[in-house]
């Protein structure tokens, strides 16, 4: 697609600087992703460009606009606490990557002494 069409459709893309490596590493840690150095490199550039593109929203006057979290306004609806059918424990356990007896086995979660 030509740059002309891209600009028409989505507005100017500011040439934002790539995110620095430490920032990307921090984000990856928060998101539990262990990026390869190659992935880190690619993502630094991509993230910089995409975040630069988002900058256009800064110029929009939103002083009067309330946040719109979802398209329908919801009210809390309470229901009677009636027992119903749920998935059988063995059905749920069968989905687990590792099992032991009737339990789901997970890697060590606490430090050993």
């Amino acid at each position: 697609m030509s740059a002309r069409i891209l600009a028409f459709m989505i507005g100017p893309v500011s040439s934002a600087a790539p995110l620095d490596a430490r920032e990307v590493e921090h984000l990856a840690r928060l998101a539990r992703l262990d990026l390869t150095p190659q992935e880190q490199d690619n993502l630094r550039g991509d993230l910089g460009r995409i975040l630069g593109y988002f900058e256009q929203l800064r110029g929009v006057d939103t002083a009067e606009a309330e946040e719109m979290q979802r398209p329908v306004s919801l009210i809390n609806v309470l229901r009677e606490d009636v027992p119903g059918e749920v998935l059988a424990p063995e059905v749920v356990a069968a989905l687990a990557p590792e099992r032991e007896g009737g339990f789901i086995r997970v890697p060590r979660t606490v430090e050993q002494d």
Binding site: F54, L57, V60, T62, A65, E67, M68
Partner: peptide
């Protein structure tokens, strides 16, 4: 505030 909250406000303007 700069990103997610801002986007939710522009979302309102688009819906309006």
């Amino acid at each position: 505030d700069a990103y997610y909250s801002k986007a939710m406000r522009v979302r309102r303007l688009i819906a309006d």
